[in-house]
Every structure is written in structure tokens, then in C-alpha cells.
Amino acid sequence: MTELELDDPQPGELLVRVDAASVCHSDLSVVSGVRPRPVPMLLGHEAAGTIVEAGEGTSLPVGQRVVLTFLPRCGECAACRTGGRAPCEPGSVANGAGVLLAGGSRLRGPQGSVHHHLGVSGFADHAVVDERSVVPVDHEVPPDVAALLGCAVLTGGGAVLNSAGLEPGQSLAVVGLGGVGLSAVLTGMALGAGSVTAIDIQPGKLATARELGVDAALTPLEAIESGLRADILVEAVGRASALEQAMTLTAPGGRTVTVGLPAPTERAALSPVELVSKGAAVVGSYLGGSVPRRDIPRFVDLWRAGRLPVEKLMSARIALDDINEAMDDLAAGRQIRQLITFDHH
């Protein structure tokens, strides 16, 4: 591990003690170069913690548990007025530059400034974040559950809740059973989907889906051969070929929702004639079309009612020192969500 210096929070910012963080493919994609980011950068964006210092002008108290979210919303731009359909414009610019929403970095290393990852940089025991990057939750929500709400559930669950607008009784299929895909599965079940089909090439992930109670867990070939057609199809792989397959498996009049983030050079082919004749829709969904302060309380209510058991997505608990091995395990498909816990004593 490397020790970094962390500046005090500026007006509108918070110093948060990170209580739990998890390893997501969006972190891995920066390491692999699929998503180029300015370096050096402190990774980690799916996390939860406790406010230990509040900058001038903030509204949340010291001691408040918060979920850290990876796209701050300014609340003022045209995109923020779309109700979650479009990502915040200033927030997206800040994330791309590796700075906080107010500009600049609060992290410094031996060679100078260190960039923030998606406004969070949660692979550390503390983080300075913009208040618009957090959502308060009750202390009854454990830190590990809260961490998963900030990315996996907002993205996968939000895709079902917001971008797809799943109605009770509709059939749902999910291609790609990582943390995001399985969050979509759980949310579909919680919202009363008529049937839920889980699709992946990894036998272990299909087994996990069966344990969660899906109606069917299939390989892509099995899904095609079965003639599956789902009203709502969520693609959570992040490959153009997976999106093409998802469109094929979508029923006439249905909706394909893609949340995966392939390499920028990838391109998918589609048949305009088939799209029109089926009356189908293809929807891109960033952060699940979520507004974190609107939607995280919804997911907390589902979790509290026992209908959204996100704890079942936690496949391993690791120390921060194990982060490199965790990245390897994630790349190999051996893990769903690896939770980093911190010993603050």
C-alpha cells in the first residue's frame, strides 16, 4: 500500500471514513486500459462510509452513514432535469478529468497530485468527496450492503426499475451475471417479474443465479436454442456481441437495456428491419437511469422488507492489501463482489 496525503474538505465537501468498498469491473477496466483515465489515480467507486468532517455549506452531519455514488449530480444542468435518463454534464466532465465536482484533486502523493476515480476513490481508509456524491442512509443499513447500493444495485437494479420500467408480470432476462447483472435479477424478482431468466457462460454464476431463485439459468447457446424471448432484456456484459445477442432474445414490443461498457472501439450490428418489425426498443442506461437520492431509498426499502437480499452478491471479503489479487479474480470471472473491510482501530 501507498500512503497519500488528503486535503481538508473544501466548501460543499465531506471527509468520509470508508467503512466498506467493493471491487467492480469499472475499476478493472481502468487497470486494463479499456477505459482510459488520467494517472496517477486512486481507484475505487463502490463504497460506503461515515462522515467525520463536513466542509462549509454542507447539510449532512458528522456521524452520518452515507453511500458514495460514482456520478455526482449538480442538479442544475439540462441533463439533471431529465429525471436520470441522461448523466449530469458537469459531473461527467469532472469524472473524465479525475477531479471533484468543484474542480481539482484533494489527493497528493510523493510525485504530486493524484486523480480521483469517479469522484470517490474508495480504495483507501478515508476520502474527500463532494456532498453531491453521497446519499445518507440509516445506520441499520450495514456498510457492506450500503456499498453495493451505490453502484451494482443502482446500475443493474436501476436499469430494471427506471430504464426498462418493468411492470409486474413481464418477463425479464439478464445477460451477464456479475454484480450488476445479478442486481438486475434481484430487482426484477422484487418488482414482481412474471419470470426471470439468468444467462452467462460461467457455471458458477449460473449456480448463484439458481440459488437466488431464478426461473431459469442458461448459457447463451441454451437461451438461443430454447427460443427464449423476454419482454425486458438487460445486457450487463460490456461486449458488443452480448448486446447483439440480447436484441435477438428480446420479444416483439420488448425493450433491450444495455448497461455494459465495452471498449470504445467496439461496434454492434443490428437489423433496422427487425427492429422496426418487432416494434422493439434499445435503450442505453448509465447508472441505471438513476437519481441516487431518489432511488437509493427505494432500494433500501426493498432490502429492509427482505425483497432485495443484496448480501447474497458478496462472494468474498478481503483486505485492502489483497486488491491486486482481487482484480485478477474479477477478470477471471471467479468472483461477483469482493468486499474490502477496513480496520479503523
Rank of each mutant, 00 (worst) to 15 (best):
G12V: 10
V23R: 09
R37Q: 06
G44L: 00
E56W: 02
T58M: 02
T58P: 03
V66W: 07
L68N: 00
L71A: 15
P90Y: 08
S92G: 02
A94P: 03
G96D: 07
A97C: 04
S105G: 00
H115M: 02
H115L: 06
H116C: 03
G122D: 05
A124L: 01
V129D: 06
D130A: 14
H139A: 13
P142C: 13
P143H: 00
P143S: 07
V145A: 12
G156Q: 12
G157L: 12
G158L: 00
V174K: 01
V175C: 09
M189T: 09
A190N: 09
S195V: 04
V196S: 10
D200S: 11
Q202E: 10
A207L: 13
L212K: 12
T219R: 08
R229H: 06
R229T: 06
Q245P: 06
A246K: 15
M247V: 14
T250H: 13
A251H: 09
T258Q: 11
L261T: 12
P262A: 09
R293A: 11
P297S: 04
R298F: 15
F299G: 11
D301A: 15
E311V: 11
A316F: 01
I318S: 13
I318P: 01
D321S: 15
N324R: 15
D329Q: 13
A332H: 08
Q335E: 15
I340W: 06
I340V: 15
